[in-house]
Nucleic acid binder design. Structure first.
Lengths: 195, 195
DNA sequence: GTCTATACCCAGATAGAC
DNA sequence: GTCTATCTGGGTATAGAC
């Protein structure tokens, strides 16, 4: 089999197993079984189990930060940027379901892998984009100044990044639909407005 | 040492280790070290590592559901109930930091432990309380009917249960303060209201 | 109730034939 | 590049002395 393809296969199967059982609970032998080779063969592609994890996270962070930069480049209104960042979270979570789940589950373990792989700085770009959108909105009066912007950020971040755990895009509700609904709730609130 | 006290010690140290490293990555020997005994001694108190986890979760779920029933008993307005349920999440997370973190990290593993321990039904009480408060609010017109109540529930649940990861109660901001702030954001939104 | 010692298993990783 | 076989370490759990 084409080496590149096999490598891809190892990454994909690993991502799936890591996501569903956790990294520690997933064995090299299980990964090999899924790929259809013997465990020794995996070591021709990656020097260790940890190296597989690092590679998965690198691909994910690279793509995520790239897409994030596109969003901040087209400087829209604060509300538009929040909706775009919410959609970014939903769609990258879908495209990198394995990596995202690992990221959620194994917080501090992943932090270490990131620092090792020199990706910590890149990983922080998304947070800065959120905080900038929020700060701009407060500055221009679009957002209230009697709400702690830090609290607002943490709440919407958790809500958005956890969302793929209960939402799968369907024909009835796409990721874009959900991003819009989330933005409506956080920006306008659940209580009816007088109009 | 008093057996009951030692048992308590084992539970507390285990909770701390499980929460910070994950269950699979925490070894019986580590727990024993923390308690200050040899690993064999632990087996006089619990038949297995899993039994420790189950016991931790049982204590937590029992207390949580008890406090939840108190809230639903005093039937307040929907907004008050949401604030009370938010505070419930924040304060039980503080009182059971270990158990809560385990609960967050090891979702599907914990589900199995719950079913085994016959606690699944109890664990669902909190969800029902949230959904009832939301449905009542929509029915009486306090909440908008053009927002999917299911989406609203999932968002506020994730936001509230993740909050202890970034918030520790201080003299400047207590859990009650944060619960109020969270409720304000979700109910009234981040955009200023005309008044 | 705790310690010492150890059985037993399964993990990650390696070596060499093909 | 893959398979077979195996090394080595560390995990849970147990047994028996004290």
């Amino acid at each position: 089999m084409d080496p590149h393809e096999r490598r891809r296969q190892i990454l994909d199967r690993s991502a799936h197993l890591f996501a569903s059982k956790g990294i520690a609970a997933t064995t090299i032998r299980e990964i090999a079984d899924e790929v259809g080779v013997y465990s020794g063969a995996l070591y021709h592609y990656f020097p260790s189990k940890e190296a597989i994890v690092t590679e998965l996270i690198r691909e994910y962070i690279d793509d995520l930060s790239g897409r994030c930069r596109e969003i901040t480049a087209q400087s829209q209104t604060p509300v538009d940027r929040i909706e775009a960042l919410a959609l970014l979270a939903l769609s990258t979570s879908e495209d990198y379901r394995g990596a995202t789940t690992i990221w959620q589950r194994e917080g501090e373990y992943m932090r270490d892998r990131l620092v090792e792989a020199d990706l910590a700085e890149t990983a922080d770009e998304v947070e800065r984009a959120w905080r900038a959108a929020i700060a701009d909105g407060v500055a221009e009066g679009t957002f209230r100044d009697d709400i702690d912007p830090d609290v607002f950020y943490q709440l919407i971040r958790d809500a958005v990044w956890q969302a793929p755990r209960w939402h799968r895009p369907t024909s009835e509700r796409s990721n874009a639909d959900l991003a819009r609904e989330i933005t409506r709730i956080f920006v306008d609130g659940f209580r009816p407005r007088a109009e």
